[in-house]
Structures are given as C-alpha cells and as structure tokens.
Amino acid sequence: MSAKPEPWQTAEIAGPKKALVITKPEIAAAMIKRAKRSILVVGYLSTKTDKDTGKMIDYAIRLNKAAGIPIVATAHTIQEFVKKGFEQATQMNAMDIGNRLKDPTWKGLDGKGPYDVALFMGLPYYMEFVILSGLKHFSTNLKTISLDRYYNPHATWSFPNLKVEDWNQSFETMISKLGGN
C-alpha cells in the first residue's frame, strides 16, 4: 500500500481543500498535546479484530489514558468499551456528535466549552468521509484528525493509506509520545 495521499475509496475525490498527511505519528501526538480541548470519536469498526492485530478500540482506550481525551462511542461501540472495563465513554450517534461538533456554542460532553480538535477512528470510511466534510465546511475553529488506516481527505489531518503493521506502529509511537504505555 502506498503512503501517497490518495483517498482509499478511489472515487471519493475531495478538494480543492484536502487533508494534510500525517507523515509521522509524532505530528499527531504534538497536535493532541497542543489542543486545548480534544475529543475522540470511535466507531464500531474499531471493535472488529484485524487479522494481524488486536482491536483498534484498545488503542482508543490507551489514547484516553495517555492524553485524557474524552471518548464518544458511536453506535454499539460502547458495549465493547464497557466489556473492557472502560466506562468513561459517552454513547452518541455519529451524526449527532458531528452536528454538535459543528456548533461553536456547544459546551461539550462536560459542559466546559467547545472542542478545538476532534479525532476520528473506526467509522465506515464513506460515513466518516461525509461527516468530516460537514465539519470541514460548517464548523468554526475545529481541526479534525482521521486516525484510520486510510487517507480520508476531508479531515484537516489524516494518516495516509497504511499497511496494518505501520498503522499499529503509528499508534504505538503516538501513545508513547503522549506519555502513555
């Protein structure tokens, strides 16, 4: 698989404004560190086991522990979080969280104010594509980061199309840089 910034689904051409490629996971870690208030949106595909790796949901939990990022679990993903003993996630429909992130007056899950960075992983590619597009066009002061294995051009920043092992390593590096384990 190439690391070129091409949309994974061939016809999902975006632009002129396209996501910058996260060439090094350290960049993503730095952005999370710099964010005043970040949030991680985790879709149900993160509960599926890739043949070469563990479930991606484990990385979501480790990211939460490393950087204190609150998690929104879309669809039935919440069940897997709870099974893993992680009970801090908030269940919300993917469109609903997208719609709220768009709103600069939304006070967030904790009522303390809007978020400036939203990270996404585990949604169906095409669904994440359009939600990121909605946020690109209609949110104010929100940066989005796609942590999925495939380049998602409507994000502000996105991983390129990655091999599974490179993707895993990206998470390991990111979590390590954020001080987690």
Partner: peptide, 8 residues
C-alpha cells in the same frame, strides 16, 4: 446538517 461530497 450538511455533508458535502466535495467542495465544488
């Protein structure tokens, strides 16, 4: 909540 396919 609009979800554009593309920017144009």
């Amino acid at each position: 909540f609009y979800l554009p396919y593309c920017d144009v």
